[in-house]
Amino acid sequence: MEQALFRYICECQDCGGKAALVTIVETHGSTPRKAGSAMLILPDGRAFGTIGGGCGEAEVRRQALTALDENRPRLYTVQMLNDVAADEGMVCGGTMEVFIQII
């Protein structure tokens, strides 16, 4: 995880804010990032860090905002399989398991 991301997490917690920490825990096939990549999503939708960008990251951001609303962590699978990837303009063809943690 990048040092800048740790700084944002600390700032968020120091201000009493809530955020979703999204971490890739496992990948299969071709994915833009690998396990350990992380990003922080704030309730207003701002994001710090990346798990690869594009449609997959946008999908995870929506899931993170839902997790924040429900105040419940979740494990989520991002499917970037060849047929889905081609339809969405993705260049990858694998899957990513991400853990969305409320901090």
Rank of each mutant, 00 (worst) to 15 (best):
M1E: 12
M1Q: 11
E2R: 14
E2M: 11
Q3M: 12
A4F: 07
A4V: 08
A4D: 12
L5R: 12
F6A: 13
F6C: 11
R7E: 15
Y8L: 12
Y8V: 09
I9Y: 11
I9N: 03
I9K: 07
E11R: 15
E11K: 14
E11P: 06
E11W: 12
E11C: 13
C12G: 14
C12V: 14
C12N: 14
C12A: 15
Q13A: 15
Q13S: 10
D14P: 04
D14I: 12
C15V: 12
C15I: 13
C15R: 15
C15D: 15
G16S: 13
G16C: 13
G16E: 09
G16N: 14
G17I: 13
G17Y: 14
K18G: 10
A20N: 10
A20T: 12
L21C: 09
L21D: 07
V22H: 11
V22I: 15
V22L: 14
V22G: 13
T23A: 13
T23S: 14
T23R: 10
I24L: 13
I24E: 06
V25I: 15
V25L: 14
E26V: 08
T27H: 08
H28W: 15
G29K: 05
G29N: 05
S30R: 11
S30V: 08
S30E: 08
T31E: 01
T31K: 04
T31Y: 02
T31P: 02
P32D: 09
P32M: 10
R33H: 04
R33A: 09
A35L: 02
G36L: 07
G36E: 06
S37T: 07
S37P: 05
S37K: 01
A38F: 10
A38L: 10
A38N: 13
M39R: 05
M39P: 01
M39V: 04
M39I: 08
M39A: 04
L40R: 01
L40D: 02
L40Q: 02
I41F: 03
L42G: 06
L42T: 06
L42S: 06
P43I: 09
D44T: 06
D44G: 08
D44P: 03
D44R: 06
D44E: 12
D44S: 09
G45P: 02
G45T: 03
A47D: 09
A47N: 10
A47P: 00
F48D: 06
F48N: 02
G49M: 12
T50W: 06
T50K: 03
I51K: 06
I51Y: 04
G52W: 00
G52Q: 00
G52N: 00
G53Y: 05
G53R: 04
G54K: 01
G54E: 00
G54N: 00
G54Q: 02
G54A: 01
C55S: 10
G56A: 11
G56F: 07
E57P: 00
E57D: 01
E57M: 00
A58V: 05
A58L: 07
A58D: 02
A58E: 01
A58I: 05
E59Q: 05
E59C: 07
V60N: 02
V60P: 00
R61T: 08
R62P: 00
R62W: 01
R62C: 04
R62F: 01
R62D: 08
Q63P: 00
Q63K: 06
Q63T: 00
Q63N: 01
Q63C: 05
A64N: 03
L65V: 04
L65E: 03
L65A: 02
L65D: 01
T66V: 14
A67Y: 07
A67K: 07
A67I: 10
L68P: 01
L68T: 03
